[in-house]
């Protein structure tokens, strides 16, 4: 079954690495739903957050291929319940609508929108939240003349992760991570080897 899976990739800062990672997806005809690159908790180390709609088994193999790239330090992949994630959106709304229709302003306030720019002709609001919340607000704003809308890529923090600090320190000796090496027969000695 296809799930929304968030892939987190820690990398060195190298020109061309984005392409090297992206083509691993396109080669397998997997669409990238969302892609964000940012600095990580460690200086000089970058963090890609990639969202795909795929089967876990496919993502597991893909993650191994990503981790195999020379300049990639570590790859994790997680379901939505294993991460804290947010997206940000900007909405440009005509100023006269806000002035005339009180319920529009209420709608924005209720949804936690914050005005970023207020001008005579338009107002730009910002919200941060999950995909559905943003989609809902867009749908409700559309009838009132939404001039422009943009949503950012997903950024995500892995609940169970302790970050990359320790791993970087001992990277030379580090075993392949459990997520990638996890094997269904591991620790099932009695079932595999029957007397």
């Amino acid at each position: 079954m296809k799930n929304e899976i968030t892939i987190t990739v820690y990398t060195e800062n190298q020109v061309g690495l984005l392409n090297r990672i992206a083509i691993l997806f396109s080669r397998r005809k997997i669409n990238i739903e969302s892609l964000n690159t940012s600095p990580s908790e460690l200086e000089g180390i970058y963090r890609f957050t990639i969202v795909v709609l795929e089967e876990e088994e496919v993502v597991r193999k893909l993650a191994r291929q990503i981790e195999k790239q020379i300049d990639v330090l570590k790859v994790y992949f997680n379901n939505n319940d294993e991460i804290i994630w947010q997206e940000m959106a900007l909405y440009k709304v005509p100023a006269d609508i806000i002035a005339e229709k009180v319920k529009v302003e209420r709608l924005l306030r209720v949804n936690g929108a914050r005005a970023v720019v207020i001008r005579k002709d338009y107002i730009v609001f910002e919200t941060t939240g999950q995909r559905e919340e943003i989609n809902n607000l867009v749908a409700r704003l559309e009838p009132f003349g939404l001039i422009e809308f943009v949503r950012s890529a997903r950024i995500a923090i892995i609940k169970a992760s302790a970050g990359i600090h320790d791993q970087i320190l001992e990277f030379e000796e580090k075993l392949p991570g459990d997520t990638l090496t996890g094997n269904e027969f591991l620790n099932k000695h009695k079932e595999v080897v029957t007397e």
Binding site: T11, E12, I70, D71, V72, L73, I168, F171, E172, E173, K174, L175, P176, H189, V192, V193
Partner: peptide, 26 residues
């Protein structure tokens, strides 16, 4: 002779060696 993000040789896990040997023995 080393690149931080590149591990050419995965570390050998002794547990797997003994699991494999047990399978081969049987």
């Amino acid at each position: 002779s080393r690149i931080r993000s590149y591990r050419p040789k995965p570390v050998i896990r002794p547990a797997y060696i003994s699991e494999a040997a047990a399978l081969i023995d049987r």
